[in-house]
Write a protein that binds this DNA or RNA. Structure first.
Lengths: 196, 196
DNA sequence: AAGACTTTGTGAAGGATGTCACAAGGTACC
DNA sequence: GGTACCTTGTGACATCCTTCACAAAGTCTT
């Protein structure tokens, strides 16, 4: 909305866009202070500014991607092209054949250089795009190198420490959620689920 | 657990693994019928079987990936290697330079062939790995071709029809959630959030 | 400037969700 | 077989979250 030049928005309009009730939106936004003006609505620029600050997106975050396979390269491109608060500054891999490979923006460097890269580049966050078997070790390396948080795409249980929060994203879950939301075409045994 | 040969599990053990209360797990599982045995716990094989059925993962799902850029290829590999309920059977792209490109398992085909591919290959689901600007059109094409559901990775608002549910995954959200969970090192203006 | 119309912020009510605690049912060991 | 010990399933309770409804506050038109 802001990029389209709109100046104001009502909770009613937001509710339609976000598929929430208008009351819900007002309650939520009121938590951040009195952002709206009665009879008028919310100032979009003001909302963006306040939310950006509350979500801590008013500062930049520098990231390193661990694992430069298909997923690692895809994530680098996905996050790297972003002109927002996030920028991928480096990618590492244990495979020597990948060293020096250009992935648009930077070249792949050895996993061993991780600590040095984090220090030199001022890296804040790590992204795990490694096989499940290497997830825990990679997380530990990132923490030892000094990152403040880690986003994990490996389907593995990783034990985290409080100094470096871990957020895991298992893409298969979304496929499972999707098939569960599918309209069921004549599935007779579903009656046992929806008991009262 | 099943692949490790464990036979039984208690709600207590599950609660530690899943970071939920034991009572919560019992309440949830009890919804699916009396799966456990008092004094013993839950039979893992039985749980897996019941959950697989309830989540509708007892049937296979064939998928086509639209957009064979970095992300499309990564997702194909990610989902395709999966020996579970999901398998990627084809990938399409509008760019003629990509036609015939081998991405492990299949070769990239023209976007125009989509309808035919869905018909011939018995495709159930579509995966959108296209730029945001092409998301809506790609969704419409998938629906016209006859898929039953779509998983969208483009950061765009896509209007869906009830016959083909849409699930959108915006990877940037997870970065934002991660930074929000970061321990705040001396942020003085956060006091206005946690009022009372 | 007065009245009709909007739209926010918010107490109160209602609904949904999670926790507690215990009876019922099962195992294991002597 | 009896006793001590587990563990599930579940009503009752507590807590959290959402919706409702309306006063307060602003705009616009005449």
């Amino acid at each position: 909305m802001a990029s389209q030049g709109t100046e104001r928005v009502s909770s009613q309009q937001l509710s339609e866009r976000l598929d929430l009730s208008a009351a819900q939106i007002r309650k939520d936004l009121a938590q951040l202070g009195e952002l709206g003006i009665r009879g008028v609505g919310y100032d979009i620029a003001g909302l963006v500014e306040r939310l950006t600050k509350v979500l801590r997106l008013d500062q930049g975050y520098r990231m390193v991607v661990v694992g430069m396979g298909n997923l690692g390269r895809a994530l680098s491109a996905y996050f790297g092209f972003n002109h927002g608060a996030f920028v991928v500054v480096a990618g590492v891999d244990p495979d020597p054949e990948k060293f020096g490979l250009d992935v648009g923006g930077f070249t792949v460097r050895p996993l061993e250089d991780l600590a040095q890269i984090v220090r030199d580049e001022g890296v804040d966050l790590g992204v795990l795009a490694v096989p499940a078997s290497a997830a825990q070790e990679s997380y530990d390396r990132l923490v030892a190198a000094g990152v403040r948080g880690v986003l994990n795409f490996a389907p593995a249980q990783v034990q985290a420490v409080p100094q470096a929060p871990l957020k895991s994203v298992d893409l298969r879950i979304y496929l499972e959620e999707l098939v569960f939301s599918l309209p069921e075409d004549a599935e007779p045994d579903s009656s046992s689920i929806s008991t009262e």
